Computed example of a mutant assay.
Amino acid sequence: MNVFKIVRIPILPLQMVNAHLIIGPGGCILVDAGIPGAETKIERTLAQEGLTFKDIKLIVITHAHIDHAGSAAIVRERSGAPIVAHEGDEKHFSQEVPMTFCPTGWFARLYIKTPVMFRPYRAFAPDILLRGQETIDLGRYGIPGLIKSTPGHTAGSISIELDSREALVGDLIASGILLGGIARTGRARRPPFEDDPHAVARELNRLLASGVETFYIGHGGPLKAAEVERHASSLLLLPPALEHKRCGGDQPQ
C-alpha cells in the first residue's frame, strides 16, 4: 500500500504543461516548477491538498527548459526547500549558457522561431547537484524511491523512480498533440525537442526493465508501460546523426 500520492499540477490547461506533487506523510516533493509565474498554480494545488509552500521538502527540476525550471527560484524562496538537479544542465540553470534545441517535427521547427523557449527565467544554482550517475534516496523525505540521471531529452535530464512501479520522467516522453496534452493523451510521442532519441530509448527501456508500470510526464499522460515500450522501440529506428543536424540554439531575431 502506498504511503504517498501523486498529484498533477496543471501549469497550462488541457495537460499541455504539468508539474507534480508527491505527497507523503511528512510533507511533499515538488517535481518541476513550470513557467515563470507558475508559483500561483503550485500554491493553488497545494491549498487544495491542505498544504502550503512550507510543506515542500524538496524541489526536483527534471531539466532546464523554461516550462520546467521557470519558477524554481521563487518556489525555493517561498518554501525554503532545496533544489536538486543534474550537472548536465547546470550552466543553463545559471543562464551562463543558452539552451540549444533539437526539434522533433514541424510544430517544433515553427515554435523555435518564436521567443518563447528563449525567454530568460530567474537564474539559480541547485542546492543539490547530481553528478554523473549519482542517485538520491528519497527515503529521507518519506518517499520510497530514487532520483536518477536519465539523459536524452537534455544532457542533465533526471527522473524519479518510485518503489510503487511509478516514475516521473519530465520530458523523456510526451503524449497528445502539438506541445503535448490537448488530445490523444494516452498515445506516446516525442516531445517537441529532444537531444538524443537513442539515449531516450535506452533510458525508457531501463525503466521498463526495472518494472515501472506508469509514467507521469510534463506534457499529457500519464502513460502505461505497453505504450512506452512501443514508443521506445520506434525511437531506436531513428537515425540520431540526422536528428542532431537539426539542433539549434540561436535566439529568434
Rank of each mutant, 00 (worst) to 15 (best):
S210T: 08
A232P: 08
R230P: 00
G221D: 00
F215C: 11
S234L: 15
E227D: 14
C247T: 02
S234C: 10
H219D: 01
R246W: 01
K224P: 02
C247Y: 00
E203W: 04
L207P: 05
L242W: 04
P239M: 03
E243L: 15
L237Q: 15
G211Y: 04
S234A: 15
G218N: 14
A201K: 06
R202A: 09
I217D: 12
I217V: 14
C247V: 02
S233M: 05
A226N: 06
F215L: 12
R246Y: 01
P222Y: 11
E229L: 15
A226Q: 14
L238H: 10
G221C: 05
G220F: 11
A241C: 03
H231S: 13
L204R: 08
L208M: 08
G221L: 02
L237S: 15
T214E: 06
A201I: 06
L235S: 13
L236I: 04
T214D: 03
L223D: 00
R246S: 08
E243H: 15
R246Q: 01
L207N: 10
V212H: 11
E229P: 04
P240S: 06
E227Y: 11
L235H: 07
E203P: 14
A209R: 04
R206V: 14
Y216L: 13
C247R: 03
P240K: 07
S210K: 13
E213Q: 13
H244W: 04
A201F: 05
E203H: 14
E243G: 15
L223A: 01
A232W: 10
T214H: 09
L238G: 05
R230F: 05
H231L: 12
V212D: 11
R206T: 15
N205A: 03
V228P: 05
R230T: 03
S233L: 11
K224W: 02
S233C: 06
R246K: 04
L238I: 15
L223K: 00
P239W: 09
H219E: 00
A209V: 04
S210Q: 08
A241M: 07
P239F: 08
L223P: 00
R202Q: 03
E243S: 15
G220H: 07
L237D: 12
V228D: 01
S233H: 10
L204G: 05
A226S: 11
A241R: 10
Y216G: 13
V228R: 07
A201M: 06
G221Q: 06
R206P: 12
Y216K: 14
S210L: 09
S233N: 05
R230W: 04
E203I: 08
R206H: 14
A232R: 11
N205P: 02
L237M: 14
L223N: 00
R230Y: 05
R230I: 00
A226Y: 07
A209L: 08
L208T: 02
